[in-house]
Amino acid sequence: MTLSALAFWVLSILLVGSALAVVLSKNLFHAVLWLALALTGTAGVFLLLNAEFLAAVQLLLYAGGIITVVVFAIVVTERLVGERLSQTSRGIVSGALVAIGLLVIIVSTLTQRQLPSTPLPQLGDLTRLVGEQVLTTYVLPFELLALLMLVAMLGAIYFARPED
């Protein structure tokens, strides 16, 4: 077994295990911490796929940004109501049936297809390529993205403003 295959299996077990912990753990705070582990594992998968820049973005935005915001939201909503952080789930059997059914459909479709097992040669440094294409070919979506984030920020501030 090569080193990259070993890394893939370790990261897969880490990712699937922490994802299961996210949806199954009773304590919402623990679920968020498991989500942080799952997102870090995804950054590892990105590294394995030669996407170093995306791994850095993943760690900064997801593991840094979203986890902080979610913890903040939990603190704001749970502390005020004075309940315990435990949370229950409903319809576990039907939910598991839906999820496993979808998984079986996807995996059976994937195994029937002939997919490449070795990557094609890359067109040079991918990080440089991403930077160049974002500012030339994809410059309009990039600017629209900036607009979207501005609108999202304004919307979040508007929703969360103190009542007057």
């Binding site: 919402l28 939990i74 949370q87 229950t88 576990i92 839906v98 998984l103 996807i106 997919l115």
Partner: peptide, 27 residues
């Protein structure tokens, strides 16, 4: 191969779907 990554992603996606369907808390 590509297949292994796609199956890993499908597994994580279905776990997430399970969470969306079964969780009672909005967060």
């Amino acid at each position: 191969g590509l297949q292994a990554y796609l199956i890993l992603a499908a597994t994580v996606f279905c776990i997430g779907l399970f969470g969306v369907v079964t969780r009672r808390n909005t967060i």
